[in-house]
Structures are given as C-alpha cells and as structure tokens.
Design a protein around this nucleic acid. Structure first.
Lengths: 166, 166
DNA sequence: CTCCTCGCGTTATATTATATTGATCATCAG
DNA sequence: CTGATGATCAATATAATATAACGCGAGGAG
C-alpha cells in the first residue's frame, strides 16, 4: 500500500465515473468531478474539511455544504466510499461502478466492500471478498435480519508496514 | 428487536460488569456505573450528548468530558461498543466480558462482533458469528494485511420491522 | 416567456470530540 | 496526624465534523 497515489488509476477511475454517470443520466458537474479528482488523487482517505481546504485553492467560494453536497452525490453513486471509523472518504477503485452501471439496476444486491485500514501509513485498501459477503448474509439470515448494506472496516497493518515480504 | 429494553438483561449485564471490573482491578465508579446503566437501559444506541442530557437529570454537574471519560473506560473494558456509523454507543450483551475476564488476557485475539442495525426501529443487535470472523481473517491474509480489529455494521431491517414471522 | 427543478453560494447553527486547567479524594510513607 | 502522591472528576475553551435554511441563477418543459 505504502501511501502512494497512482495518478493513472485516478484518471481511469475518473473516466469510468464519467461514463457511469452519463449512462444513468446523473450529472457529474465540474465541481463534483473536481471533488472526485481530489479524492482519487489521495492515497489516504480525506476528511471533509481537508477536502474543503484543497478545493478552496482552485475554488475560493467553497464552504462546508459545497463539499458535503458533492460527497453526497458521489457516495450515492458509489464513486467514493465513506470510511465510518475515520469520518473520511476514499475513491472507489473496485470495478463495481463499471460492472453494474450498464445493466440498469440500482445495486439492489448487497454490496459488501471491505476496507483494510493501515494504522501505520494510513492507507486504505478496498477489497470485495465473496466469502465475507456470504458469511455476513448467512449470519444475518440466522438472526432473522434482512441486510441492506454492510460496513466492514478492518484496522491493522498493511503488507508494507507489517514488514512482510512484498 | 422491536425497540424495547430488557431491564432484567440490563441488571444482569451490570452485575457482570461489576464482577468483570472487580476481577481485573478496574474501578467501576458510581459515575461509570450510572453511564453504563443508562446505555444498557436503552434499546437504541445513544449518542454522547444524549447520554449527557440523561446523565444531567440525576447528576447536574455533568459536562462533555464526564461522559467521554466514562465512555472511554467502558469501551476499553468492552462493556459498551461504539457504533461507528451512528457515533453512538450500545451496551455489550454478548457474554464476551464474562468469558474472557477471568483468564487474564486483554482480548488480544481478534474480536469481531457484528452489529445489525435496524433502519426502521433503530434497534441494534449484537452477534458474534464465527464464520464472518474467519472469512474476514482469511480475506485479510490473502491481501497481505494483518488485522487487529474489525468493525462490522450491517444496516437493514430486523425481524419485527421486516414483517417476518417472529 | 413562464414555471419548475436543480445545482450552487452563503450564512448560521448543530453535533461530536479534544485540550487544558484546577478541584477533590483516597492512599500511604514518615 | 501530616503531607506527598496519584487517580478521578469538574469546568471551560476550542477544534472538528455536519446540517439547516434561504436565495440566486442556469437550463429544460410546457
């Protein structure tokens, strides 16, 4: 993980976001696109006010609602994820937006991305493990619970910070 | 679930908390005990300031640090859990404190309680499903990640609110 | 053109969390 | 008993996070 942003990844994700929104009639305005770009550029999750500060450098009039509204749009459309533990946001790099955009549904099936949060470098990796998803679904069912959305955030040490072989 | 507190449960949990603290030399002061009682009495998670308001009715001098310090103590000792999605706290009713208190370790093994949050009645059920725990551990390992603590919060509908047979 | 919706700006406010400092109290050595 | 020590708690101030309320202006539908 090692806290480095991959700009090419970011570009690709922005591209996908464009197409994703176009396909659904959602308006990825310049402001929203810029916020998404800022998030994708960062290797670590960004808080709303960090984001606001960065936004201000190119967009002086920005205020808290500016960024919160953009984040609302972006999270609704699954272009970014909110990390609850950190009150922060990270770009979605799993192909999910891609994969699901075209066949028209609104992600009715349970999405269960998992976030691996490194306590040392602050980096976050997003995975989507089928085993975790099905275990969660099974456990919920056993409890008589009908799950809609799961937040799975694991804190620990990433490969690099744990000193494991790369 | 149906948003109802079970007072007997609360009493029992308070009792267990006493013993748990006594066994570990931790001081469950009157204030901490009262905060724990308030949390256990509530069927839904309580925010820090809701808690503060309730605390004030019997303890006029209470201020934010009062409740935050109590919560810090209670969460450290696993007597209450913090629900990250909600910035709120709920009492621990799983026997974990019991089970682990006596054999002296500090919960070094990975605990992976899961919280089922009903979007309708606001109730929260705590479960500890081994399958979820092991799936998470396996997924982390595959990603080269060394997990320390996992937050698993599932939003959906509880048995009662989903209209399923009881 | 007029109505309407939506994105956005702006101000103010609410909610959640931490920092700092001083007061209180139990314990125990001398 | 006295005073030192450490833990707990209180009170105030401040920071960080989030939302409410109001209005303006652009752009499409009728």
């Amino acid at each position: 993980m090692a806290a480095e942003a991959d700009a090419r990844d970011g570009e690709a994700a922005l591209e996908r976001a464009e197409q994703h929104c176009a396909a659904r009639g959602a308006k990825l305005t310049a402001l929203r696109r810029q916020v998404l770009g800022l998030i994708l550029d960062s290797p670590v999750p960004l808080g709303a006010y960090t984001l606001l500060d960065r936004l201000k450098t190119t967009h002086p009039g920005a205020a808290p609602p500016t960024v919160y509204r953009a984040l609302e749009f972006l999270t609704e459309h699954r272009l970014v994820h909110r990390i609850e533990r950190l009150n922060a946001f990270i770009g979605c790099r799993v192909g999910c937006s891609d994969a699901c955009a075209d066949h028209g549904h609104e992600h009715d099936h349970a999405h269960a991305a998992q976030f691996l949060i490194c306590g040392s470098c602050g980096g976050v990796e997003e995975i989507e493990d089928a085993g975790v998803g099905s275990a969660l679904a099974a456990a919920s069912r056993r409890a008589g619970f009908r799950p809609a959305h799961a937040t799975v955030e694991v804190e620990g040490l990433c490969r690099g910070c744990a000193g494991l072989p790369g």
